[in-house]
């Protein structure tokens, strides 16, 4: 019997996120609660990784935790504000890829191969050497390479394998051994689970292993790959989680829409919603205190198909091998 990997988010971050780590921060499985715990812990010199890095990445940039980002899309860079300034003056170094690029690089990392070819990026300005070697970058000639296939001569771009030091992910459910089940569209999370050296999972529900084993198709990573499991209802808020809750646009508009504009705006947000609470449970208590006890009902899932038709993973226990 393996030891339980259950712990709270502050312990998980203290034990498994080290200063200097590269951190996969997710997209569809965005771990907002864990990212806020990283900010609270004052981690430094991190690299944020993801195909599309949303506001949970903004927390790490504005919070002084991450000074590098490797992504196809950085939400914080979309509008003028502190993160654009950080990218211009070198405080936040960046390497631009794409959603497919990051997903394939994570897959290559998971497979243990050094690089993976793609037909994307051909014909783009990304491949111009002066842009690859830009002053804000940190990879230079380790960013990609072009070659003609040795088999048919076709041009491909080689992307380096990516093995994040740690992945933080939010999931629907897990057991205390770290077996994780996720359903719905997965974005680039599937391969991040396998590529990362350390995996920290927060889950809406902690279930017995029997629940996992009764439906093993839904497991995205086996427990032996996982370092820590955190029981964290609403751990993806204000982002969404299939089957649990939708995007909290009203909260984002009210509390987060200005946080990137200045360090004063950021500090005001962080003091209230990150440093002002001890963990996600206190965050949710605070949410209810501010917006009302029933406010979360406005985002709780209330439509869509249910229940699903039962499936059976059966076999014949008395099968004969000889007549």
């Amino acid at each position: 019997m393996s030891a339980s990997k259950l712990m709270d988010e502050n312990e998980a971050v203290a034990r498994f996120v080290d200063d200097g780590d590269s951190v996969y921060v997710g997209y569809t499985s965005a771990a907002y609660g864990l990212c806020q715990a990283i900010v609270r812990a004052g981690k430094r010199n991190l690299e944020a990784i993801g195909g599309s890095v949303g506001p949970q990445g903004t927390f790490l940039f504005m919070g002084g935790c991450a000074n590098r980002v490797r992504a196809g899309y950085v939400a914080a860079a979309l509008r003028p504000g502190v993160v654009q300034e950080m990218m211009a003056d070198g405080r936040l170094r960046f390497e631009d890829y794409s959603n497919q690029g990051i997903a394939l690089m994570l897959m290559a990392g998971a497979l243990g191969i050094p690089f993976i070819p793609t037909r994307s990026f051909l014909g783009t300005d990304y491949l111009r050497p002066e842009f690859r070697d830009h002053a804000g970058g940190f990879l230079r000639d380790k960013k990609w390479a072009e070659m003609d296939s040795p088999f048919d001569g076709e041009k491909v771009v080689l992307l380096p394998a990516l093995r994040p030091d740690v992945a933080v992910l939010h999931a629907q459910r897990a057991d205390e051994d770290g077996n994780v089940q996720v359903w719905g569209h997965l974005g680039d999370a599937r391969w991040a689970y396998w590529a990362a050296r350390k995996v920290i999972v927060s889950a809406e529900e902690i279930v017995p292993r029997e629940v996992i084993a009764a439906d093993p198709d839904r497991t995205v990573t086996p427990g032996f790959r996982v370092s820590a499991v955190v029981h964290m209802p609403w751990g993806g808020h204000p982002s969404s989680l299939v089957g649990y809750y939708d995007y909290d646009y009203a909260y984002q508009a009210r509390t987060m829409s200005r946080m990137g504009r200045s360090m004063e705006e950021w500090q005001s947000f962080a003091d209230e919603w990150i440093h002002g609470v001890r963990d996600r449970a206190e965050y949710i208590d605070h949410y209810r205190a501010v917006f009302g006890a029933e406010a979360l009902d406005a985002i709780a899932v209330n439509a869509g198909p249910s229940p699903i038709a039962p499936v059976r993973y059966g076999y014949n226990a008395t099968l004969r091998f000889r007549m």
Partner: peptide
């Protein structure tokens, strides 16, 4: 840059392929 934008997401590979 005069102005940085969010980035390409999957736009690049869709246009390529």
């Amino acid at each position: 840059p005069e102005r940085r934008l969010g980035g390409t997401g999957g736009n690049t590979e869709i246009a390529c392929l």
